[in-house]
Each structure stands twice: as C-alpha cells, then as structure tokens.
C-alpha cells in the first residue's frame, strides 16, 4: 500500500452559488506523479489550487471538507498559510519569473523564509543543478530572468519551487505554453524530481499523462469520475466516460 502524502476528503468548493467541485475524495501517494486529466472547465486546476490555498485570494470562494498534508489540516486556521505554501510548492501554466535576476528568483524565497544568509548561494546552485538549468545559466546569474527562453523560464520556476525543498509540487499545465522540446525537458525533469517530491500535475496532453504518471485521476463536471493507476486508466478504464475521454472521443 502506498504511503499517502496529500489528500482531500468530502471536498466541495463553491464560487458564489456555483458548485465547482463536488464531493471529491482523493489520495495522492508519496513520491509518485499523479496526473489530473479531464476536459476544460472540469475543475482540475481548481482542485489543484485548493491544496496550497490559492483560493484564499478569491473573496467568493467557499470550501467544505478536509484537505490534509500528512496529518496536517491544510485549512485549519491555526496553521499558517505561508508555512503550508512553503511545504506545497506550485508551478503555473505560464512561466511567471519574478522581475528580478535569475539568482534573485531563487534566493527570494530563501530570504523571506529566513534561511541563513551563508547557505543561500549553495542552495541556489543545487536547486539550479537539480532542475538541469545550472549549465545553461551559471555564467549569467545576474541577468534578468525574463531574458531566458520560455522553456528555461519554466525550469527556473521549477527551480524556484524546488529551492525551498517542498514536500509536494503542484503543477498546473506546466508545458502548455512551451514548444515540444522544452516540454520534453520538463517531463524528464518531473521523472527525476519524483524521487524526492510528491508531484501532482494537471495536464491536457494524454500522451504526456501516460508517459509520466503513476496514477491518474479523470475529472468531469466537477466530479472525480475515476482514479486509478495510469495503466488502468489508459488501457482498461472502468468508467464509460473515462474510456471515451482518453480515447479522444470528446474533450
């Protein structure tokens, strides 16, 4: 039995009066890649963003149910949201480097979380190495991050997340704005990162989901229709909807 890192139990999420997520129960196993797939608007990203409390920013979002990181209740008001976001990192759909240098993009999070000053250069370097960006940027760490290519920017965003040594990395369609070669590099990176991190990724690309996932959740209209190993979802889905979706019949 897999060890559970992150879970949602009886999760309902509303925007105003509209129910976006309907009674979601899901367990993400530790140090594996879990993909969330489903047609646009099915609530994949909404589900992903509820784990690091990104919905706190939307005044009309309302959440019911229990979300847990290990035994920690993510929405318990006693727990600091900044500490939770330090443990659950996030990579977004469009690369969003900070308007700072490459180096500062990584040192920023370390500074705000008060890492000892003398350890920061070393941590930045190892995070860049871990994200396979070091060789490409080691001579231009002082250059503005926006000067990098889109694919490099996205790997920088991953490095920026990794530098904090989170336990979980949430990825919201991290390759959708990238060319095939850059996406391939990100995929390779995800395969390496899963040794140390629990990864949850939202993707529209079925081939990608099949290549990288250990487990796959198929969502439709705010419900988690099927959750199983990647093999079962793609080769032997139990649900008719799943079968049609992964077969490319709709979505």
């Amino acid at each position: 039995m897999d060890e559970i890192k992150l879970s949602a139990h009886a999760l309902n999420l509303y925007f105003g009066n509209k129910k976006i997520l309907k009674n979601i129960n899901i367990d993400f196993p530790k140090n594996q890649v879990t993909s969330l797939i489903g047609p646009s608007g099915c609530g994949k990203s909404t589900l992903l963003r509820s784990f690091n409390r990104m919905h706190d920013l939307s005044p009309d979002a309302r959440i019911e149910g229990t979300l847990k990181l290990d035994e920690l209740d993510i929405y318990d008001q006693k727990n600091s949201v900044t500490e939770i976001r330090k443990r659950i990192g996030m990579v977004f759909q469009k690369p969003n480097p900070l308007p700072k240098t490459i180096y500062e993009n990584l040192s920023y999070a370390l500074n705000i979380h008060k890492f000892p000053k003398n350890e920061i250069p070393q941590l930045v370097e190892s995070a860049l190495k871990e994200s396979y960006l070091w060789e490409e940027v080691k001579d231009e760490l002082k250059k503005p991050a926006v000067k990098l290519s889109g694919g490099q920017q996205q790997r920088l965003c991953i490095a920026r997340t990794v530098v904090l040594r989170p336990e979980v990395i949430l990825m919201d369609e991290p390759c959708s704005a990238l060319d095939p070669i850059s996406s391939h590099k990100i995929e390779e990176l995800i395969m390496i990162l899963k040794k140390n991190y629990t990864i949850v990724i939202v993707t529209h690309n079925m081939q990608q989901a099949q290549r990288i996932s250990d487990k796959v959740g198929f969502m439709y209209l705010g419900e988690l229709v099927e959750f199983d190993t990647a093999d079962n979802i793609f080769k032997n889905p139990a649900n008719e909807l799943t079968k049609n979706y992964v077969g490319g019949h709709f979505g």
Binding site: M54, L57, T82, F92
Partner: peptide, 16 residues
C-alpha cells in the same frame, strides 16, 4: 495576477 501568485505560492505574505 500571475505575478502575485508567483510569490504567494512561494509562501510570501501579501505584504511581501
């Protein structure tokens, strides 16, 4: 908003 999300997701406070 993606700029704000970038730092918030790193655990920065709103003020930071």
């Amino acid at each position: 908003n993606s700029m704000r999300e970038a730092t918030l997701a790193l655990g920065a406070t709103q003020f930071e």
